[in-house]
């Protein structure tokens, strides 16, 4: 029943989308921004669709954002958290999903600690699968909302210089950003302690800037990554204070930039570690617009995967049934 759409069956990563498909999602997100400003923040486009949010890792922002997106499209949603589900009794991912599918669902939004989990699932069930973060692989809707926020701010992506600062090694956000930005023609640099940069990251088409001062000199926008404290058991950095001293995005450092830098952060922030409070709350921060755009981008993805296929011709639509 699930037919191929303009995006294919699943959204597992920006690596697998074309530049046109990414632009289509961003363009489709535009009218969805307005839906969230309506007195009744709801349209019937996905009425009767059942969506399961399957979260094997803790998440507040992403899960709530997906849930708002689903509800504003009138889909019926069920949240399954790993704790308290049969996954904690040893059931495999596929068994969990097949059981859900036996209850006739249409889509699964999955977050999982294993890289590739979304793709693995998508190949084994008929429902559309949307990756809400898989291990260190990708977080495509975060990448999309960052693109939308940058496009809002600059009016374009092509030719922008974006530096991704911090713990690139553990960051699926970084990977989705690199794929999305480079496909749309931005220049991307990564900046962080050598221990937190993936090996061979240059092969993804990015430049390495060893010092955060260099990134600030070079970039139009900084995407400041969260230092993933829960993944920090391996002794990647000497201490949080040391990290802030060397790589923290601070007002003093930004004051030396040749222009005002737009500051993005995927959240949740460690204030005083990777980013100072004055910067996070400052006039060039787009951290809250990112959150707002997250709902619109997720609505666009859900809508397009559900079959809302657009007219590529781009000519003014001539509706057949009036």
């Amino acid at each position: 029943m699930t037919a191929a759409t303009a995006l294919g069956k699943d959204l597992t990563g920006l690596e697998y989308l074309s530049a046109d498909q990414i632009r289509l999602i961003l363009d489709t997100a535009e009218p969805f921004k307005e839906v969230s400003e309506r007195p009744i923040k709801k349209v019937p486009a996905l009425r009767g669709k059942t969506i399961v949010n399957l979260f094997f890792e803790a998440s507040t922002r992403t899960r709530i954002s997906f849930e708002f997106a689903e509800k504003r499209l009138s889909a019926d949603t069920v949240n399954v958290a790993a704790q308290g589900s049969s996954a904690s009794k040893g059931e495999t991912l596929v068994d969990t999903a097949k059981n859900l599918e036996a209850m006739r669902i249409d889509m699964v939004v999955i977050r999982h600690g294993a890289s590739g989990a979304a793709q693995f699932l998508g190949q084994r069930i008929r429902s559309n699968v949307i990756n809400a973060g898989d291990g260190k692989h990708e977080h495509p809707t975060q990448g999309l909302l960052d693109l939308l926020t940058l496009r809002d701010k600059f009016g374009r992506i092509e030719g922008l210089k974006v530096a991704i600062v911090g713990d690139v090694l553990h960051s699926r956000v970084a990977r989705s950003n690199i794929w999305g930005l480079t496909k749309l023609g931005a220049e991307v640099a990564v900046c962080g302690p050598a221990s937190l940069l993936p090996r061979n990251v240059e092969q993804l088409g990015v430049t390495i800037l060893p010092r955060v001062e260099d990134a600030i000199q070079w970039a139009d926008a900084l995407n400041v990554l969260r230092l993933q404290l829960e993944r920090m058991q391996g002794g990647f950095i000497p201490s949080l204070r040391e990290y802030n001293r060397v790589f923290g995005v601070t007002t003093e450092r930004l004051a030396k930039a040749p222009k005002d830098l737009v500051i993005l952060h995927p959240g949740p922030m460690n204030r005083g570690v990777e980013i100072d409070s004055d910067v996070a709350d400052g006039p060039h921060s787009v951290i809250l617009p990112q959150v707002t755009n997250g709902v619109a981008v997720r609505m666009a993805v859900l809508y397009l995967l559900a079959g809302g296929s657009p007219d590529w011709a781009g000519a003014p639509g001539r509706g057949e049934d009036h």
């Binding site: 363009d27 969805f32 307005e34 809508y303 809302g308 296929s309 657009p310 003014p316 639509g317 049934d321």
Partner: peptide
């Protein structure tokens, strides 16, 4: 008014224009 999101045929008809502006 763009009625795309209020249509009753998301699944059944072919290509349709991208969602337009409602204000």
């Amino acid at each position: 008014l763009d009625i795309t999101l209020y249509r009753d045929d998301l699944q059944t008809v072919g290509p349709r224009p991208v969602v337009g502006e409602t204000s």
